[in-house]
Nucleic acid binder design. Sequence first.
DNA 1: TGTACCATACTTCCATACTAGCTCCCGGCT
DNA 2: AGCCGGGAGCTAGTATGGAAGTATGGTACA
Lengths: 249, 249
Amino acid sequence: MKAETIAAWTLDPGGAIVPQVYALLREAIIRAELAPGDRISESEIAQACRVSRQPVREAFIRLAGEGLLVVRPQRGTVVTRIDYAAVLDARFLREAIEADIVKILAEAADEVVVADLRRQIEAQRAAGDARAFTRLDEGFHRTLADAAGKRGAWKLIEGLKSQMDRVRFLSLDRFRVEKLIEQHSAVVERIAAGDIGGANAAIRLHLRAILADLPEIEAAYPQHFDRPERGLPHPVNAPLALGSGDVGA
Amino acid sequence: MKAETIAAWTLDPGGAIVPQVYALLREAIIRAELAPGDRISESEIAQACRVSRQPVREAFIRLAGEGLLVVRPQRGTVVTRIDYAAVLDARFLREAIEADIVKILAEAADEVVVADLRRQIEAQRAAGDARAFTRLDEGFHRTLADAAGKRGAWKLIEGLKSQMDRVRFLSLDRFRVEKLIEQHSAVVERIAAGDIGGANAAIRLHLRAILADLPEIEAAYPQHFDRPERGLPHPVNAPLALGSGDVGA
DNA sequence: TGTACCATACTTCCATACTAGCTCCCGGCT
DNA sequence: AGCCGGGAGCTAGTATGGAAGTATGGTACA
Protein backbone atom coordinates (compact mmCIF):
# COMPACT_ATOMS: atom_id res chain seq x y z
CA MET A 1 0.00 0.00 0.00
CA LYS A 2 0.96 3.62 -0.22
CA ALA A 3 3.22 4.20 2.70
CA GLU A 4 2.61 7.91 2.84
CA THR A 5 -1.03 7.34 3.55
CA ILE A 6 -0.43 5.92 6.96
CA ALA A 7 2.94 7.36 7.84
CA ALA A 8 2.88 8.43 11.44
CA TRP A 9 -0.78 8.23 12.14
CA THR A 10 -0.99 9.44 15.66
CA LEU A 11 -3.83 8.85 18.03
CA ASP A 12 -4.93 9.68 21.53
CA PRO A 13 -3.35 7.22 23.95
CA GLY A 14 -5.87 8.13 26.61
CA GLY A 15 -8.92 6.65 24.98
CA ALA A 16 -9.53 3.15 23.72
CA ILE A 17 -7.37 2.38 20.74
CA VAL A 18 -9.61 0.13 18.71
CA PRO A 19 -12.27 2.70 17.75
CA GLN A 20 -9.61 5.22 16.82
CA VAL A 21 -7.87 2.85 14.48
CA TYR A 22 -11.21 1.80 13.10
CA ALA A 23 -12.28 5.35 12.36
CA LEU A 24 -8.94 6.22 10.83
CA LEU A 25 -8.98 3.28 8.47
CA ARG A 26 -12.64 3.64 7.58
CA GLU A 27 -12.13 7.25 6.65
CA ALA A 28 -9.06 6.42 4.60
CA ILE A 29 -10.91 3.74 2.68
CA ILE A 30 -13.98 5.84 1.98
CA ARG A 31 -11.79 8.70 0.80
CA ALA A 32 -9.98 6.23 -1.41
CA GLU A 33 -6.68 7.10 0.19
CA LEU A 34 -6.55 3.40 0.74
CA ALA A 35 -7.60 2.25 -2.69
CA PRO A 36 -9.39 -0.96 -3.58
CA GLY A 37 -6.91 -3.77 -3.92
CA ASP A 38 -4.38 -2.16 -1.61
CA ARG A 39 -2.92 -4.70 0.73
CA ILE A 40 -2.51 -3.71 4.34
CA SER A 41 -1.23 -5.78 7.21
CA GLU A 42 -1.86 -5.73 10.90
CA SER A 43 1.76 -5.14 11.75
CA GLU A 44 2.09 -2.37 9.20
CA ILE A 45 -0.80 -0.38 10.62
CA ALA A 46 0.30 -1.21 14.14
CA GLN A 47 3.70 0.32 13.49
CA ALA A 48 2.22 3.41 11.89
CA CYS A 49 -0.05 3.95 14.87
CA ARG A 50 2.59 2.98 17.42
CA VAL A 51 0.38 0.34 18.97
CA SER A 52 0.44 -3.40 19.09
CA ARG A 53 -1.15 -5.63 16.53
CA GLN A 54 -4.03 -6.66 18.75
CA PRO A 55 -6.20 -3.55 18.61
CA VAL A 56 -5.46 -3.18 14.93
CA ARG A 57 -6.66 -6.69 14.41
CA GLU A 58 -9.93 -5.95 16.14
CA ALA A 59 -10.42 -2.86 14.00
CA PHE A 60 -9.79 -5.00 10.92
CA ILE A 61 -12.49 -7.40 12.01
CA ARG A 62 -15.01 -4.59 12.32
CA LEU A 63 -14.09 -3.19 8.94
CA ALA A 64 -14.36 -6.62 7.39
CA GLY A 65 -17.83 -6.85 8.88
CA GLU A 66 -18.80 -3.75 6.95
CA GLY A 67 -17.32 -5.14 3.79
CA LEU A 68 -14.50 -2.63 3.54
CA LEU A 69 -11.75 -5.18 4.09
CA VAL A 70 -11.30 -8.82 3.35
CA VAL A 71 -9.20 -10.74 5.83
CA ARG A 72 -7.78 -13.90 4.36
CA PRO A 73 -6.17 -16.07 7.01
CA GLN A 74 -2.48 -16.61 6.53
CA ARG A 75 -2.66 -14.65 3.30
CA GLY A 76 -3.21 -11.04 4.00
CA THR A 77 -5.79 -8.31 4.20
CA VAL A 78 -6.87 -6.22 1.27
CA VAL A 79 -9.13 -3.27 0.77
CA THR A 80 -12.19 -4.49 -1.08
CA ARG A 81 -13.29 -3.12 -4.34
CA ILE A 82 -16.64 -1.39 -4.22
CA ASP A 83 -19.11 -4.19 -4.66
CA TYR A 84 -21.68 -3.01 -7.16
CA ALA A 85 -24.24 -5.44 -5.84
CA ALA A 86 -23.53 -4.50 -2.24
CA VAL A 87 -24.03 -0.83 -3.01
CA LEU A 88 -27.41 -1.53 -4.54
CA ASP A 89 -28.29 -3.81 -1.65
CA ALA A 90 -27.36 -1.13 0.82
CA ARG A 91 -29.46 1.37 -1.02
CA PHE A 92 -32.36 -1.04 -1.08
CA LEU A 93 -32.15 -1.56 2.67
CA ARG A 94 -31.78 2.11 3.38
CA GLU A 95 -34.72 2.88 1.20
CA ALA A 96 -36.91 0.31 2.90
CA ILE A 97 -35.98 1.56 6.35
CA GLU A 98 -36.08 5.27 5.72
CA ALA A 99 -39.34 4.94 3.81
CA ASP A 100 -40.98 3.55 6.91
CA ILE A 101 -39.32 6.18 9.04
CA VAL A 102 -40.77 9.05 7.09
CA LYS A 103 -44.13 7.34 7.16
CA ILE A 104 -44.01 7.43 10.93
CA LEU A 105 -43.12 11.09 10.81
CA ALA A 106 -45.84 11.94 8.33
CA GLU A 107 -48.43 10.16 10.44
CA ALA A 108 -47.82 12.50 13.31
CA ALA A 109 -46.11 15.57 11.97
CA ASP A 110 -44.33 17.31 14.81
CA GLU A 111 -43.98 21.02 14.22
CA VAL A 112 -40.79 21.26 16.19
CA VAL A 113 -39.20 18.54 14.14
CA VAL A 114 -40.39 20.04 10.90
CA ALA A 115 -39.00 23.40 11.90
CA ASP A 116 -35.68 21.80 12.74
CA LEU A 117 -35.56 20.01 9.41
CA ARG A 118 -36.40 23.19 7.51
CA ARG A 119 -33.61 24.93 9.30
CA GLN A 120 -31.20 22.18 8.33
CA ILE A 121 -32.25 22.54 4.72
CA GLU A 122 -31.45 26.23 4.86
CA ALA A 123 -28.04 25.34 6.17
CA GLN A 124 -27.61 22.92 3.30
CA ARG A 125 -28.43 25.69 0.84
CA ALA A 126 -25.78 27.80 2.48
CA ALA A 127 -23.17 25.08 2.34
CA GLY A 128 -20.37 26.00 0.05
CA ASP A 129 -19.16 22.78 -1.41
CA ALA A 130 -20.25 19.23 -1.89
CA ARG A 131 -18.18 18.00 1.01
CA ALA A 132 -19.85 20.31 3.48
CA PHE A 133 -23.20 19.32 2.07
CA THR A 134 -22.39 15.67 2.57
CA ARG A 135 -21.85 16.25 6.26
CA LEU A 136 -25.11 18.15 6.58
CA ASP A 137 -26.89 15.50 4.57
CA GLU A 138 -25.75 12.91 7.07
CA GLY A 139 -27.20 14.98 9.89
CA PHE A 140 -30.46 15.43 8.04
CA HIS A 141 -31.08 11.73 7.64
CA ARG A 142 -30.02 11.02 11.19
CA THR A 143 -32.49 13.61 12.39
CA LEU A 144 -35.25 11.83 10.52
CA ALA A 145 -34.45 8.58 12.28
CA ASP A 146 -34.15 10.23 15.67
CA ALA A 147 -37.41 12.07 15.30
CA ALA A 148 -39.16 8.81 14.51
CA GLY A 149 -37.72 7.29 17.65
CA LYS A 150 -35.57 4.93 15.61
CA ARG A 151 -32.11 5.76 16.71
CA GLY A 152 -31.31 2.06 16.56
CA ALA A 153 -32.23 2.10 12.90
CA TRP A 154 -29.76 4.83 12.20
CA LYS A 155 -26.98 2.85 13.82
CA LEU A 156 -27.71 0.09 11.38
CA ILE A 157 -27.88 2.43 8.43
CA GLU A 158 -24.50 3.85 9.34
CA GLY A 159 -22.97 0.47 8.75
CA LEU A 160 -24.72 0.15 5.43
CA LYS A 161 -23.67 3.57 4.35
CA SER A 162 -20.03 2.63 4.16
CA GLN A 163 -20.38 1.19 0.71
CA MET A 164 -22.57 4.01 -0.51
CA ASP A 165 -20.25 6.60 0.95
CA ARG A 166 -17.36 5.28 -1.06
CA VAL A 167 -19.33 5.89 -4.21
CA ARG A 168 -20.43 9.30 -3.04
CA PHE A 169 -16.86 10.31 -2.40
CA LEU A 170 -15.91 9.43 -5.94
CA SER A 171 -18.82 11.46 -7.27
CA LEU A 172 -18.33 14.44 -4.99
CA ASP A 173 -17.73 16.96 -7.73
CA ARG A 174 -20.39 15.48 -9.89
CA PHE A 175 -23.72 15.44 -8.13
CA ARG A 176 -26.21 18.24 -8.22
CA VAL A 177 -26.44 19.46 -4.68
CA GLU A 178 -29.38 21.74 -5.42
CA LYS A 179 -31.44 18.86 -6.68
CA LEU A 180 -30.79 16.81 -3.60
CA ILE A 181 -31.69 19.72 -1.37
CA GLU A 182 -34.94 20.16 -3.26
CA GLN A 183 -35.65 16.50 -2.61
CA HIS A 184 -34.94 16.96 1.08
CA SER A 185 -37.34 19.82 1.07
CA ALA A 186 -40.00 17.75 -0.67
CA VAL A 187 -39.67 15.07 2.00
CA VAL A 188 -40.05 17.60 4.79
CA GLU A 189 -43.02 19.32 3.19
CA ARG A 190 -44.81 16.03 2.59
CA ILE A 191 -44.20 15.19 6.24
CA ALA A 192 -45.48 18.57 7.33
CA ALA A 193 -48.57 18.06 5.22
CA GLY A 194 -49.18 14.66 6.77
CA ASP A 195 -49.02 13.16 3.29
CA ILE A 196 -47.85 9.65 4.09
CA GLY A 197 -47.74 8.35 0.57
CA GLY A 198 -46.10 11.49 -0.72
CA ALA A 199 -43.41 11.47 1.93
CA ASN A 200 -42.77 7.83 1.22
CA ALA A 201 -42.42 8.50 -2.50
CA ALA A 202 -40.23 11.52 -1.90
CA ILE A 203 -37.68 9.76 0.26
CA ARG A 204 -37.51 6.80 -2.09
CA LEU A 205 -36.93 9.13 -5.01
CA HIS A 206 -34.23 10.90 -3.07
CA LEU A 207 -32.37 7.78 -2.05
CA ARG A 208 -32.37 6.58 -5.61
CA ALA A 209 -31.10 9.90 -6.85
CA ILE A 210 -28.12 9.74 -4.53
CA LEU A 211 -26.73 6.89 -6.58
CA ALA A 212 -28.15 8.08 -9.86
CA ASP A 213 -24.80 8.34 -11.51
CA LEU A 214 -23.45 5.08 -10.14
CA PRO A 215 -22.97 3.56 -13.60
CA GLU A 216 -21.17 6.70 -14.69
CA ILE A 217 -18.90 6.56 -11.68
CA GLU A 218 -18.19 2.94 -12.24
CA ALA A 219 -17.23 3.69 -15.81
CA ALA A 220 -14.94 6.49 -14.67
CA TYR A 221 -13.24 4.43 -11.94
CA PRO A 222 -13.44 0.85 -13.14
CA GLN A 223 -10.51 -0.20 -11.01
CA HIS A 224 -12.43 0.75 -7.90
CA PHE A 225 -15.28 -1.59 -8.63
CA ASP A 226 -16.09 -5.23 -8.60
CA ARG A 227 -17.69 -5.61 -11.98
CA PRO A 228 -20.98 -7.40 -11.90
CA GLU A 229 -21.37 -9.83 -14.73
CA ARG A 230 -23.62 -7.85 -16.99
CA GLY A 231 -27.15 -9.10 -17.08
CA LEU A 232 -27.37 -11.94 -14.65
CA PRO A 233 -26.76 -10.86 -11.13
CA HIS A 234 -29.29 -8.18 -10.29
CA PRO A 235 -32.28 -8.74 -12.49
CA VAL A 236 -34.60 -7.45 -9.81
CA ASN A 237 -32.91 -4.15 -9.33
CA ALA A 238 -33.70 -2.56 -12.61
CA PRO A 239 -37.47 -2.99 -12.32
CA LEU A 240 -37.25 -1.87 -8.73
CA ALA A 241 -35.54 1.30 -9.76
CA LEU A 242 -38.28 2.25 -12.15
CA GLY A 243 -41.64 2.16 -10.54
CA SER A 244 -41.63 -0.18 -7.65
CA GLY A 245 -43.72 -0.44 -4.71
CA ASP A 246 -46.02 1.58 -2.67
CA VAL A 247 -44.83 4.99 -3.66
CA GLY A 248 -48.32 5.75 -4.65
CA ALA A 249 -49.71 4.50 -1.37
CA MET B 1 -22.92 -17.70 36.08
CA LYS B 2 -24.16 -21.24 36.14
CA ALA B 3 -21.09 -23.34 35.92
CA GLU B 4 -22.88 -26.37 34.58
CA THR B 5 -23.95 -24.43 31.53
CA ILE B 6 -20.49 -24.18 30.16
CA ALA B 7 -18.75 -27.09 31.80
CA ALA B 8 -16.54 -28.78 29.29
CA TRP B 9 -17.76 -27.16 26.14
CA THR B 10 -15.76 -28.90 23.53
CA LEU B 11 -15.15 -27.67 20.04
CA ASP B 12 -13.45 -28.67 16.85
CA PRO B 13 -9.77 -27.74 17.05
CA GLY B 14 -9.48 -28.01 13.29
CA GLY B 15 -11.59 -25.02 12.38
CA ALA B 16 -11.33 -21.43 13.48
CA ILE B 17 -12.09 -21.02 17.14
CA VAL B 18 -13.81 -17.66 17.20
CA PRO B 19 -16.93 -18.57 15.24
CA GLN B 20 -17.39 -21.72 17.27
CA VAL B 21 -17.24 -19.89 20.56
CA TYR B 22 -19.51 -17.24 19.13
CA ALA B 23 -22.13 -19.73 18.01
CA LEU B 24 -21.97 -21.59 21.29
CA LEU B 25 -22.51 -18.50 23.37
CA ARG B 26 -25.16 -17.06 21.09
CA GLU B 27 -27.16 -20.23 21.26
CA ALA B 28 -26.80 -20.40 25.02
CA ILE B 29 -28.00 -16.85 25.43
CA ILE B 30 -30.96 -17.20 23.09
CA ARG B 31 -31.99 -20.41 24.83
CA ALA B 32 -31.67 -18.56 28.12
CA GLU B 33 -29.18 -21.11 29.40
CA LEU B 34 -27.12 -18.04 29.98
CA ALA B 35 -29.70 -15.84 31.59
CA PRO B 36 -29.87 -12.07 31.50
CA GLY B 37 -27.70 -10.62 34.19
CA ASP B 38 -25.38 -13.60 34.30
CA ARG B 39 -21.80 -12.51 34.48
CA ILE B 40 -19.29 -14.29 32.32
CA SER B 41 -15.61 -13.62 31.90
CA GLU B 42 -13.14 -14.19 29.14
CA SER B 43 -10.99 -16.49 31.22
CA GLU B 44 -13.94 -18.49 32.46
CA ILE B 45 -15.21 -19.27 28.97
CA ALA B 46 -11.67 -19.80 27.76
CA GLN B 47 -11.11 -22.48 30.38
CA ALA B 48 -14.40 -24.18 29.61
CA CYS B 49 -13.55 -24.32 25.92
CA ARG B 50 -9.90 -25.16 26.54
CA VAL B 51 -8.70 -22.27 24.47
CA SER B 52 -6.93 -19.05 25.25
CA ARG B 53 -8.70 -15.87 26.19
CA GLN B 54 -8.02 -14.09 22.93
CA PRO B 55 -10.51 -15.83 20.63
CA VAL B 56 -13.08 -15.71 23.39
CA ARG B 57 -12.58 -12.00 23.59
CA GLU B 58 -13.27 -11.60 19.89
CA ALA B 59 -16.41 -13.67 20.18
CA PHE B 60 -17.49 -11.41 23.05
CA ILE B 61 -17.04 -8.38 20.84
CA ARG B 62 -19.24 -9.84 18.14
CA LEU B 63 -21.93 -10.74 20.64
CA ALA B 64 -21.76 -7.29 22.14
CA GLY B 65 -22.27 -5.91 18.65
CA GLU B 66 -25.55 -7.80 18.44
CA GLY B 67 -26.57 -6.55 21.83
CA LEU B 68 -26.42 -9.90 23.56
CA LEU B 69 -23.54 -8.98 25.83
CA VAL B 70 -22.33 -5.83 27.44
CA VAL B 71 -18.60 -5.54 27.91
CA ARG B 72 -17.68 -3.02 30.55
CA PRO B 73 -13.96 -2.35 30.62
CA GLN B 74 -12.26 -3.41 33.80
CA ARG B 75 -15.61 -4.36 35.28
CA GLY B 76 -16.86 -7.45 33.63
CA THR B 77 -19.10 -8.79 30.93
CA VAL B 78 -22.74 -9.58 31.51
CA VAL B 79 -25.52 -11.09 29.47
CA THR B 80 -27.90 -8.29 28.60
CA ARG B 81 -31.50 -8.35 29.54
CA ILE B 82 -33.82 -8.43 26.58
CA ASP B 83 -34.15 -4.81 25.61
CA TYR B 84 -37.81 -4.17 25.02
CA ALA B 85 -37.04 -1.19 22.83
CA ALA B 86 -34.43 -3.10 20.86
CA VAL B 87 -36.86 -5.90 20.17
CA LEU B 88 -39.40 -3.47 18.80
CA ASP B 89 -36.70 -1.72 16.83
CA ALA B 90 -35.59 -5.00 15.33
CA ARG B 91 -39.13 -5.83 14.41
CA PHE B 92 -39.56 -2.42 12.85
CA LEU B 93 -36.47 -2.88 10.72
CA ARG B 94 -37.38 -6.39 9.73
CA GLU B 95 -40.83 -5.26 8.78
CA ALA B 96 -39.54 -2.43 6.65
CA ILE B 97 -37.09 -4.67 4.85
CA GLU B 98 -39.26 -7.71 4.35
CA ALA B 99 -42.17 -5.57 3.25
CA ASP B 100 -40.09 -4.28 0.38
CA ILE B 101 -38.86 -7.77 -0.35
CA VAL B 102 -42.31 -9.19 -0.82
CA LYS B 103 -43.20 -6.20 -2.94
CA ILE B 104 -40.40 -7.17 -5.28
CA LEU B 105 -41.68 -10.71 -5.36
CA ALA B 106 -45.26 -9.68 -5.96
CA GLU B 107 -44.22 -7.44 -8.82
CA ALA B 108 -42.85 -10.36 -10.73
CA ALA B 109 -44.32 -13.49 -9.28
CA ASP B 110 -42.10 -16.42 -10.19
CA GLU B 111 -44.00 -19.66 -10.37
CA VAL B 112 -41.04 -21.74 -9.34
CA VAL B 113 -40.52 -19.64 -6.24
CA VAL B 114 -44.20 -19.71 -5.38
CA ALA B 115 -44.24 -23.47 -5.72
CA ASP B 116 -41.22 -23.75 -3.47
CA LEU B 117 -42.81 -21.53 -0.86
CA ARG B 118 -46.05 -23.49 -0.96
CA ARG B 119 -44.08 -26.67 -0.43
CA GLN B 120 -42.36 -25.13 2.55
CA ILE B 121 -45.70 -24.19 4.02
CA GLU B 122 -46.84 -27.80 3.71
CA ALA B 123 -43.73 -28.83 5.58
CA GLN B 124 -44.56 -26.29 8.26
CA ARG B 125 -48.01 -27.79 8.63
CA ALA B 126 -46.40 -31.19 9.06
CA ALA B 127 -43.97 -29.94 11.67
CA GLY B 128 -44.64 -31.49 15.01
CA ASP B 129 -43.66 -28.92 17.55
CA ALA B 130 -43.00 -25.26 17.82
CA ARG B 131 -39.26 -25.74 17.77
CA ALA B 132 -39.31 -27.54 14.45
CA PHE B 133 -41.61 -24.87 13.09
CA THR B 134 -39.22 -22.17 14.18
CA ARG B 135 -36.49 -23.71 12.09
CA LEU B 136 -38.74 -23.97 9.07
CA ASP B 137 -39.95 -20.44 9.63
CA GLU B 138 -36.40 -19.24 9.43
CA GLY B 139 -35.96 -21.00 6.11
CA PHE B 140 -39.18 -19.52 4.78
CA HIS B 141 -38.15 -15.96 5.40
CA ARG B 142 -34.70 -16.58 4.06
CA THR B 143 -36.21 -17.98 0.91
CA LEU B 144 -38.21 -14.81 0.46
CA ALA B 145 -35.06 -12.73 0.64
CA ASP B 146 -33.14 -15.03 -1.67
CA ALA B 147 -35.89 -15.07 -4.24
CA ALA B 148 -35.91 -11.29 -4.30
CA GLY B 149 -32.19 -11.30 -4.92
CA LYS B 150 -31.55 -9.77 -1.53
CA ARG B 151 -29.35 -12.29 0.16
CA GLY B 152 -27.43 -9.41 1.67
CA ALA B 153 -30.60 -8.24 3.31
CA TRP B 154 -31.06 -11.58 5.00
CA LYS B 155 -27.59 -11.45 6.44
CA LEU B 156 -28.53 -8.18 8.06
CA ILE B 157 -31.82 -9.51 9.32
CA GLU B 158 -30.07 -12.44 10.93
CA GLY B 159 -28.20 -10.06 13.18
CA LEU B 160 -31.40 -8.27 14.08
CA LYS B 161 -33.17 -11.48 14.80
CA SER B 162 -31.04 -12.23 17.85
CA GLN B 163 -33.16 -10.08 20.10
CA MET B 164 -36.39 -11.31 18.59
CA ASP B 165 -35.26 -14.91 18.85
CA ARG B 166 -34.72 -14.60 22.57
CA VAL B 167 -38.33 -13.60 22.93
CA ARG B 168 -39.49 -16.32 20.63
CA PHE B 169 -37.67 -18.92 22.66
CA LEU B 170 -39.43 -17.83 25.79
CA SER B 171 -42.78 -18.01 24.03
CA LEU B 172 -42.14 -21.30 22.28
CA ASP B 173 -44.99 -23.17 23.92
CA ARG B 174 -47.27 -20.25 23.62
CA PHE B 175 -47.65 -19.09 20.09
CA ARG B 176 -50.23 -20.38 17.69
CA VAL B 177 -48.29 -22.10 14.98
CA GLU B 178 -51.36 -22.62 12.79
CA LYS B 179 -52.06 -18.92 12.72
CA LEU B 180 -48.53 -18.09 11.69
CA ILE B 181 -48.66 -20.68 8.96
CA GLU B 182 -51.87 -19.20 7.67
CA GLN B 183 -50.16 -15.86 7.54
CA HIS B 184 -47.28 -17.36 5.60
CA SER B 185 -49.79 -18.77 3.21
CA ALA B 186 -51.49 -15.42 2.83
CA VAL B 187 -48.18 -13.82 1.95
CA VAL B 188 -47.45 -16.42 -0.68
CA GLU B 189 -50.90 -16.25 -2.21
CA ARG B 190 -50.78 -12.47 -2.42
CA ILE B 191 -47.42 -12.79 -4.12
CA ALA B 192 -48.77 -15.39 -6.50
CA ALA B 193 -51.67 -13.10 -7.32
CA GLY B 194 -49.32 -10.22 -8.00
CA ASP B 195 -51.12 -8.25 -5.34
CA ILE B 196 -48.38 -5.90 -4.21
CA GLY B 197 -50.36 -4.05 -1.59
CA GLY B 198 -51.87 -7.23 -0.26
CA ALA B 199 -48.54 -9.01 0.03
CA ASN B 200 -47.12 -5.97 1.75
CA ALA B 201 -49.94 -5.90 4.25
CA ALA B 202 -49.76 -9.64 4.82
CA ILE B 203 -46.08 -9.71 5.69
CA ARG B 204 -46.41 -6.72 7.98
CA LEU B 205 -49.29 -8.36 9.77
CA HIS B 206 -47.28 -11.53 10.13
CA LEU B 207 -44.19 -9.89 11.52
CA ARG B 208 -46.28 -8.06 14.05
CA ALA B 209 -48.03 -11.25 15.05
CA ILE B 210 -44.74 -12.95 15.81
CA LEU B 211 -44.28 -10.65 18.75
CA ALA B 212 -47.96 -10.32 19.53
CA ASP B 213 -47.60 -11.72 22.99
CA LEU B 214 -44.47 -9.79 23.83
CA PRO B 215 -46.14 -7.94 26.72
CA GLU B 216 -47.41 -11.23 28.06
CA ILE B 217 -43.95 -12.76 27.85
CA GLU B 218 -42.43 -9.79 29.53
CA ALA B 219 -44.94 -10.12 32.34
CA ALA B 220 -44.14 -13.80 32.70
CA TYR B 221 -40.38 -13.34 32.70
CA PRO B 222 -39.82 -9.87 34.10
CA GLN B 223 -36.30 -10.71 35.18
CA HIS B 224 -35.36 -11.35 31.56
CA PHE B 225 -36.33 -7.89 30.40
CA ASP B 226 -35.11 -4.39 30.60
CA ARG B 227 -38.24 -2.62 31.63
CA PRO B 228 -38.99 0.39 29.52
CA GLU B 229 -40.16 3.29 31.57
CA ARG B 230 -43.83 3.11 30.88
CA GLY B 231 -45.01 5.83 28.59
CA LEU B 232 -42.02 7.83 27.57
CA PRO B 233 -39.54 5.88 25.57
CA HIS B 234 -41.41 4.46 22.62
CA PRO B 235 -44.27 6.78 21.88
CA VAL B 236 -44.12 6.04 18.21
CA ASN B 237 -44.33 2.32 18.47
CA ALA B 238 -47.86 2.03 19.69
CA PRO B 239 -49.37 4.00 16.81
CA LEU B 240 -47.16 2.10 14.41
CA ALA B 241 -48.48 -1.18 15.70
CA LEU B 242 -52.04 -0.19 15.03
CA GLY B 243 -52.54 1.00 11.54
CA SER B 244 -49.38 2.44 10.18
CA GLY B 245 -48.12 2.79 6.81
CA ASP B 246 -48.79 1.69 3.36
CA VAL B 247 -50.45 -1.59 4.09
CA GLY B 248 -53.32 -0.39 2.07
CA ALA B 249 -51.09 0.57 -0.77
C1' DT C 1 -23.91 -0.13 65.46
C1' DG C 2 -22.73 2.40 61.48
C1' DT C 3 -19.25 4.41 58.38
C1' DA C 4 -15.02 5.33 56.00
C1' DC C 5 -11.07 3.31 54.25
C1' DC C 6 -7.84 0.09 52.40
C1' DA C 7 -6.03 -4.33 50.73
C1' DT C 8 -7.09 -7.78 47.57
C1' DA C 9 -8.89 -10.22 43.92
C1' DC C 10 -10.77 -10.04 39.48
C1' DT C 11 -11.97 -7.72 35.21
C1' DT C 12 -10.89 -6.04 30.52
C1' DC C 13 -7.42 -4.03 27.44
C1' DC C 14 -3.11 -3.99 25.31
C1' DA C 15 1.67 -5.84 24.38
C1' DT C 16 4.53 -9.52 23.25
C1' DA C 17 5.71 -14.25 21.92
C1' DC C 18 4.79 -18.16 19.41
C1' DT C 19 2.32 -21.28 15.83
C1' DA C 20 0.52 -22.58 11.50
C1' DG C 21 -0.16 -21.79 6.79
C1' DC C 22 0.20 -19.46 2.28
C1' DT C 23 3.12 -17.15 -1.49
C1' DC C 24 6.77 -16.61 -4.01
C1' DC C 25 11.20 -17.11 -5.56
C1' DC C 26 15.08 -19.72 -6.73
C1' DG C 27 17.61 -23.77 -7.86
C1' DG C 28 17.73 -28.14 -9.91
C1' DC C 29 15.83 -31.39 -12.94
C1' DT C 30 13.64 -33.01 -17.31
C1' DA D 1 13.46 -23.60 -22.14
C1' DG D 2 9.92 -25.14 -19.14
C1' DC D 3 8.45 -27.44 -14.97
C1' DC D 4 8.64 -29.02 -10.38
C1' DG D 5 10.17 -28.88 -5.45
C1' DG D 6 11.81 -26.80 -1.31
C1' DG D 7 12.81 -23.20 1.67
C1' DA D 8 12.67 -18.34 3.16
C1' DG D 9 9.71 -14.67 4.31
C1' DC D 10 5.52 -13.13 4.69
C1' DT D 11 0.68 -13.40 6.64
C1' DA D 12 -3.02 -13.94 10.25
C1' DG D 13 -4.42 -16.80 14.34
C1' DT D 14 -3.68 -18.04 18.99
C1' DA D 15 -1.36 -18.09 23.58
C1' DT D 16 0.44 -15.72 27.43
C1' DG D 17 1.99 -11.95 30.36
C1' DG D 18 1.61 -7.33 32.26
C1' DA D 19 -0.91 -2.83 33.23
C1' DA D 20 -4.79 -0.12 34.62
C1' DG D 21 -8.95 0.08 36.71
C1' DT D 22 -13.18 -1.49 39.49
C1' DA D 23 -15.98 -4.20 42.83
C1' DT D 24 -15.70 -6.35 47.24
C1' DG D 25 -14.96 -7.71 51.80
C1' DG D 26 -12.73 -6.92 55.96
C1' DT D 27 -10.98 -3.74 59.44
C1' DA D 28 -10.33 0.24 62.16
C1' DC D 29 -12.61 4.03 64.04
C1' DA D 30 -16.38 7.16 65.61
